[in-house]
Structure formats: structure tokens, C-alpha cells
Design a protein around this nucleic acid. Sequence first.
RNA 1: GGAGGGAUGGCCGAGUGGACGAUGGCGGUGGUCUUGAAAACCAUUGAGGUAUUUUGUAUCUCCGGGGGUUCGAAUCCCUCUCCCUCCGCCA
Length: 427
Amino acid sequence: MLDITIIREKPEWVKEQMEKLNDMAAKDRIDEIVRLDAERRALLTEVEDLKAARNRVSKEIGRMKDQEAREAKIVEMQGVAAQIDELDEQVHQVEAELDEHMNWVPNLPHTSVPVGPDDSHNIVKETFGELPNFDFTPQAHWDFGPALGILDFERGVKLSGTRFYVLRAAGARLQRALINWMLDLHTTQHGYTEIISPYMVREAIMYGSSQLPKFGENLYRDIEEDFYFIPTAEVSLTNLHRDEILEAGQLPIDYVCYTECFRREKMSAGRDVRGMKRGHQFAKVEMYKFTRPEDSYDALEQMVQHAGDVCRALGIPWRIVEMVTGDLGFQATKKYDLEMWAPGCGEWLEVSSLSNCEAFQARRANIRYRPEPKAKPQFVHTLNGSGLALPRVMIAVMENYQQADGSVVVPEALRPYMGGLEVIEAE
RNA sequence: GGAGGGAUGGCCGAGUGGACGAUGGCGGUGGUCUUGAAAACCAUUGAGGUAUUUUGUAUCUCCGGGGGUUCGAAUCCCUCUCCCUCCGCCA
């Protein structure tokens, strides 16, 4: 959620930002927000004067001895109370409307973000590693994976339908090795604190990280128990410090959390249906930071490095892509994607998405800190980034390390996590 | 699933219709005392709005969430959520 004062003070400028984001629906809400905000404040002034009068007279009534005068005052105040009720009701309505509009307004892009209409204009900032040359035609993981006995799409479908698969034997172990290795890297080398948190959360939590109301379509939920299944650990991690006032000395807080993620993928129906690239359930190691406002952009660059360290250590070609305004998404002021090369599929796969959300989520989840002892609390900045998403890393590892005979070499970094296994071969 | 009991400030805990944003204690901060520290004593110590060009002042709201009764609610009523105790069930 944006700070209402920026809309109040610079509505035209905010509209320009919405245009850059290519979010015309949000732009159209701005005038209404300005109107509702003014109405709200006018109503508040009115009703608060009445309440002040009521409080004052009620105290007098408590002290009055003269029964007749007392009765007269009570009758008088009955009228005032009725007016207050009516105005309070109006305030509630206006606030609910205002809230609804604010919930659909995205975060403002940082000044450093290149302006562009959509993802086709994103900028490849830097590419690392050489694209591999094979002396055979590299296969897609969906071809050699099942043959190796490590990947089973048919049985995944049997269990749960399309977009599900089963990892088996060294395939299952490879994913577990990657998870453990990433967690170890981030906790021991990058200073993150490891978290394990619920995969199911209440509705209010989804508003806190702004998955709701805009992205409800992409969420699984249990209606009977009113639980939502998290589409990313970002949801749980954002809300971990919900309604808290942190001490400045606690910041930055850096968390890393492995979870399964659940997504309906309604928006991408029919896309990426083949292979492991886009499933309804997938594993992800997520990095998350709470920082002071002045530190958040440095923290973002740092987090890009941390995610990049994972790519680098795997020895797979990767690149950093900077999002233009039109592809920023809802919560981010600035965002990078990390992509790994997959020679079998022949495409760059998004293995990480790293965002600074500034105070956007903190405002919704009410996460503050005290800059100085006794100072007024301020909203923290929050950042999130994958470190990394497992299925696509699995694809990249399998496809980059495949050999002519269909076997897969285990990257050196992972061997200690695979019991020393060097090559995954058919049983 | 059954039966009870609870939710009050950073923490503990008092408050059952009117000077209660809330006794008291702990903790925090500042001071007195001290060579220094401790102890003791004194003072201070929540959050969010709105108005007023304003660092002050006034006022409103907040005692788990929402709704109700009343001139007036931490206090009475309804409802939801969460926690605790006992029983049952269970990885």
C-alpha cells in the first residue's frame, strides 16, 4: 500500500508513475482516492467535534445532582449520539471504499528503473559464463530425465494431474542436495537466519504481502478452514514481524527459508506445460530482508550477489536482467531477475526474482522500527529474492551437465551433499 | 470432538457503568547521591489519526477483532479469533 499523503500531495505525478507501470486501471483510481481522502478528513473533523462535546457533557452529567437538569442534558445528548452514529457510519463507508481503491494501486517505480512498456524491453545487464558447446545434440530434461529414472511425469499426472511430476532416486536426492547446499551457503557465507514456517496462512496474511486482493486467482485455498496455501515463502516471511516495532539495532534482519510453493497458474494456462518449468507445486529457497529505508537499495544489490553466488558456484551460464517499469509487478519499486541457461530447452530460465518493496508491504503488514530510542516508529523496507527456485535450477543442472550417453555429471559443489556421487547414471 | 477458564501498556498484573489511556510492580530512560559502580531516592516512559505552517497546542480513537446497549463502556450484551486446563483422538 502506498502512503496516502503522496497521492494527496502529488496526484498528477502519481498518475504519471501509473502510466510508466502500464497500470491504467490503477491510474483511474487516483482521482477517486483524492476525493475520498478529502471526504474522510472532512467527516472526521465534524464527528470529532461532536464526540468532544459528548465526552465533555457526559462527564458533567455524571456529576450533576439536579435530576431535572440531568434529564434535560441526557435528552439533548441522545440527539448528539444519533448524529455521531450516523457520521461514524459514513466515515466507515468512506474508509472502506478508500481502502479498496488503495489495495489495487501498485508500488511506485524507483527513479533508477528504466521506463519501458513490457518484459520485451527488459535489460540484460550482465552475462556470466560461456554458453556450452556440446559435441552431441543436447537433450531436453523431459527426454533424458525419465530415461535416467530420476524424473517421472506420467506418475505425477496420475497422482495430481497436469503440471505435476515425481522426482525419483538420484533426482530426488539432487533436489534435496541443492536445497541443503543453498541453505548452507546463505546461512554460513551470507549471514542469513534460517526459518521454517507454515505453508498455510490466514487470509489477512495474504493482504499483508499484497498477494490479495489482486492475485487471488493464483492462490489455492481451503475454504472450509479459511486457509490459503502460500505461493512463495515471501508471504510468511513478510508477516513474521507483522504488527511489530523493531529496534534499530535489530536491522537488517536477513532470513532464508525453504518452502514448497503453490500456484494455480491460471494466468499462464497452456504455457510452459512441458517439463518441470512451471508446476502447481514447487520448491524454493527464499531470501528475505527487513532494512532501514536508507539501506534498502544497497541490500538489493547485495541480495543479487547472494543469488548470483549460487549460480556461479554451479558453473552454469547465467545473467542478470533488470526489469523495466512495465514489468515491475505490483509490490516492487525495483526488480532484477536472474536467469540460467538451459541448453536442452534452448532458453534462459528465470531462477530468481529479486525485489525491493520499500515500505509497500511494511505499511500493509504494519512492520515498523524505531530509528532512535524514543523516536517515532517508521516503516521498514522489505526485500525478497529467490535463492533459488529449485525446478528451474534442476533443469539447468541436468541439461548443462548431461553427457552423450544420457548420464548427468553432478556439479562439484553438490557432491558432498550427494554422498560423493559424481555421475548420475541409469540404474 | 467434549467440559471449563482466559485475552488489559515493553513485561507482570489491578480494575465489574462516570476524573480510567488506565492503580501497582518489573523493565527502559534521565537525574540526585558516589572516586566509579551497585543500592536507595526523585522524575520520566504506548500507538495511530484529525485540525491548526507547527516541533507547539487542541481534539478523536485504541484495554484481542467486529458489532450492540447507554448521555457515558476496559467494565454490560452478541459474535469471531486466539490462548490455557482437563478428558477423548492422533503423526
